[in-house]
Design a protein around this nucleic acid. Structure first.
Length: 793
DNA sequence: CAGTGAGCGAGCTTCCGCTTGACTT
């Protein structure tokens, strides 16, 4: 048995480090925290100075037993968990659980997994920093107290199974606040004027510096431009430069993968996890932009060898974020020589992104020459401005261009044709187009992570789980919304005549955006009203300051918790006793048909509308109807609510049974003889005729009849069915895929069993994964081609 | 899978952070 036992957090890390150290060292992983607060409400002894009761987690018992055995046999145990608050606590828990004596234990830390860093760490051991451990205990205890005292208040006042916490509740609040901003947003429009000229065979555009608030003003301007002369009055050439972005942290990786590939944050993390486990990239949960000296050196070598030394610009980035703990390196390829790696298409794509971002961060700035041309208009004081950009030196743009969140109207700078001061331009046309202002955009998963990181809320390891939690609780939904039509006016001056056109555009269409639900809004309002301190965006930052004081030994952790818990707990008790039950009830007005009041509120099965009062009288019973997806009790109008009661509606009678039309969870449907038939998007549920309904029913009968291809005498659960993607095997409720080359006639019972066995899991899942991979928009990842031609501002 | 909208009443839910598999929800 080896003399030294080294314990790190991650097994992949253990494997790497073992190679750096000699035979005298055994390197094991503890897989993160080995102990946590006990499950129930008794985990913290509030009356006894908040004494925490820790338990070894069920899934860690085996590894703890192994570590116990190995540590007994070893002469020295090296605790090499991460150098941050959580890492220090992991080392402390290890020393407690493994009964390590001080003389036998060494605490070591390193920020990068390179041989020199590890060897240097071994030479500089220290003891466990108990102050830092206490800061972690304060963090842990505070989160438990907040979460486990607030959640039950919600069960009592809103709905069962809900949850609240320091991180998740603020995340939901951000989304609720943003939604309301959008709801009350005042759309205003103004006329944007763009002139197009012909300059010795080439075209160029110039924009008026100001916009006109009204159509009349825009029209008056165009009138004055009739017959005017357009002259280049001034040319200004300004050199400028563009710097590469720092290498990825967890948050920036999630943002770019979302913008460039359309991945949700948890997809990105699981792909990155695979790349890490395969040794292709460094650790993917990090808040640091730091690169090891070794990495900087090898990037420099790669860039010089492949692009030339003028492309190399070794750069050490520093983190701006206060809350960063920087226990790891930035996310980078382990070897810059690996331009590509083996793996799934998704893994290859994400690797490519990480690779390019890291290498670009070590490359020279791009040199850009910006030209601003001012165009005067005879007889008018106004001027038009044309801007152009020429890329003088591409630098890092050779490999990578960061994208931005705001999809603002494309102001892609173009090259200008050669121009001279005093030159008269030949006008093609001038457009004055009505443009609308836009509210702040709704959050995507990734832009929410960005916001949370800015506020110092949450950690790299929790961003993705937090986003899942708030969706799982039903506070937030991620979905697409179809845009609405809006009219806008375009005035055009061409050949000295002014034309007017009214066009239609879609606006407010959304793709994979986060929307609050009624419950999300109710819970946010309730918590903000009664627990404003915890819902404050600065709450985490202020407790972090206290944790830092604890870490510096200036404040006892129990003292800090006591100060917080006193008023908090009193507030919990008070709210629990006095606050009313929340159901977001709202009266919308009178139903024009019956004169009864129309309400909306949230019940056990979700939000619904109600006509008439609750009453004991059988005849006076109110009518109910569920709200549809996307409708909120907060914003639904009386008309929309009344509309809900038009369904289900009897379309007519067919084969002695009624056909009813309604809208369910999966959209509009018909029901006839207790069979359900979806109504296609091209039909209107409210207007569908009996003839059309019968046609759909008969169509469904035919496709159902064609569905069954083959049955087996041996097992009546087993069938060959015809589905959307061709024939497949159905066994009970499980489906299995058939290969394309498989001829259905040749399928015997034995053959089918063989296929099922080989598959090992239902075909439906695999198929779903495949399509989702395909759905990802094929946006340009390679900045290579585009970057050489233009630079996006 | 899809309609419901109640209150005689059991026992459950829940936090944030650190790590990966096991596993078909």
């Amino acid at each position: 048995m080896s003399k030294n036992l080294v314990i790190v957090e991650s097994p992949a890390k253990a494997k790497t480090i073992e190679k750096f150290l000699g035979n005298d060292y055994t390197v094991k992983s503890c897989f993160g925290h080995i102990r946590d607060l006990a499950k129930g409400d008794e985990a913290i002894d509030v009356k006894n100075n908040f004494l925490p009761h820790y338990e070894v987690s069920e899934d860690k018992k085996a590894i703890v037993a192994e570590l116990k055995k190995l540590s007994k046999e070893a002469e020295v145990v090296w605790l090499a968990s991460d150098e941050d608050r959580e890492g220090e606590a992991i080392s402390w828990h290890l020393s407690e659980v493994l009964n390590l004596t001080e003389s036998k234990t060494r605490r070591i830390v390193f920020h990068e997994i390179t041989k020199p860093a590890i060897l240097k760490a071994i030479e500089n051991p220290r003891g466990i920093d108990k102050n830092l451990v206490d800061a972690q205990q304060a963090r842990r205890v505070l989160d438990r107290l907040v979460g486990f005292e607030l959640s039950p208040v919600l069960w009592k006042k809103v709905k069962a199974n809900l949850s609240a916490g320091r991180v998740q509740s603020v995340a939901v609040r951000l989304i609720v606040d943003r939604e309301r901003e959008i709801n009350v947003f005042n759309y205003s429009s103004a006329f944007r004027v763009i002139a197009r000229f012909n300059v010795s065979g080439k075209q160029m555009e110039a924009e008026l510096a100001k916009r006109f608030e009204t159509e009349a003003e825009a029209l008056a301007f165009l009138e004055k431009c009739k017959g005017a002369t357009f002259t280049i009055k001034n040319l200004e050439v300004k050199p400028s430069e563009k710097s590469p972005a720092p290498p990825f942290t967890t948050s920036t990786l999630q943002q770019e993968a979302s913008r460039k590939m359309g991945y949700g944050v948890s997809i990105t993390m699981s792909i990155a996890q695979k790349l890490y486990e395969n040794g292709f990239i460094t650790y993917m949960r990090t808040d640091s932009v730091n690169l090891s000296e070794l990495a900087i050196g090898s990037a420099q070598k790669y860039i010089t060898d492949n692009f030339g030394s003028k492309y190399s610009r070794p750069m050490r980035y520093t983190t701006k974020n206060d809350s960063a703990q920087e226990a790891h390196e930035a996310i980078r390829p382990t070897y810059f020589e690996n331009v590509e790696v083996e793996g799934t298409p998704q893994e290859k794509k994400l690797y490519d992104l990480i690779y390019k971002r890291a290498i670009a961060s070590q490359m020279a700035k791009a040199q850009i020459e910006k030209t601003i041309a001012t165009v005067s208009i005879s007889g008018l004081p106004d001027q038009l401005i044309a801007t152009g950009e020429v890329l003088k030196f591409d630098g890092f743009l050779k490999v990578y261009l960061e994208s931005t969140d705001d999809d603002s109207e494309d102001e892609n700078s173009k090259m200008l044709p050669p121009l001279n001061v005093g030159e008269n331009l030949q006008l093609i046309h001038i457009n004055a187009t009505e443009r609308y202002s836009r509210p702040a955009p709704r959050y995507t998963e990734a832009s929410l992570v960005k916001k949370l990181e800015e506020l110092g809320i949450g950690r790299p390891s929790t961003y993705a789980p937090t986003i899942s939690t708030i969706q799982k609780r039903g506070y937030v939904v991620k979905e697409d919304r179809e845009g609405k039509d809006r009219k806008f006016v375009t005035l055009t001056l061409e050949k000295n005549e002014i034309g007017r056109e009214v066009k239609t555009e879609k606006f407010a269409s959304e793709k994979s955006k986060l929307f609050p639900s009624d419950i999300g809004m109710i819970v946010t309002d309730f918590l903000t009203k009664h627990f404003d301190k915890i819902m404050d965006f600065g709450f985490t930052a202020s407790v972090e300051e206290e944790f830092d004081k604890i870490a510096r030994g200036q404040l006892g952790w129990n003292k800090m918790i006591e100060k917080f818990y006193g008023p908090f707990h009193a507030n919990v008790i008070n709210t629990s006793e006095t606050a009313e039950r929340q159901n977001a009830e709202r009266s919308l007005g009178a139903d024009p048909e019956s004169g009864k009041t129309v309400y909306v509120k949230v019940g056990r099965y979700g939000p619904f509308a109600q006509i008439g009062e609750n009453s004991d009288d059988e005849k006076e019973k109110p009518r109910y109807a569920s709200l549809r997806a996307g409708q909120l009790t907060e914003t639904i109008t009386l008309e929309e609510a009344i509309d809900l009661f038009r369904l289900p509606r009897v379309v007519g009678n067919f084969e002695t049974k009624d056909i009813k039309a309604a809208i369910g969870r999966f959209g509009p449907y018909l029901v006839h003889d207790s069979k359900f038939i979806s109504i296609p998007k091209t039909d209107d549920v409210f207007a569908i005729t009996i003839e059309r309904a019968i046609e759909l029913i008969e169509g469904k009968r035919i496709s159902d009849a064609n569905k069954l291809i083959k049955t087996f005498a041996e097992d009546e659960e087993l069938k060959i069915l015809n589905g959307r993607w061709g024939p497949y095997i159905a066994l009970g409720k499980e489906n299995y895929r058939l290969s394309k080359t498989q001829k259905v006639d040749e399928l015997t019972y034995e053959k089918v069993l063989e296929i099922i066995k080989a598959e090992g899991r239902p075909a439906a899942k695999t198929a779903a994964k495949k399509t989702s991979a395909k759905k990802v928009p094929a946006k340009k990842t390679a900045a290579k081609k585009t970057a050489a031609k233009k630079v996006k501002k």
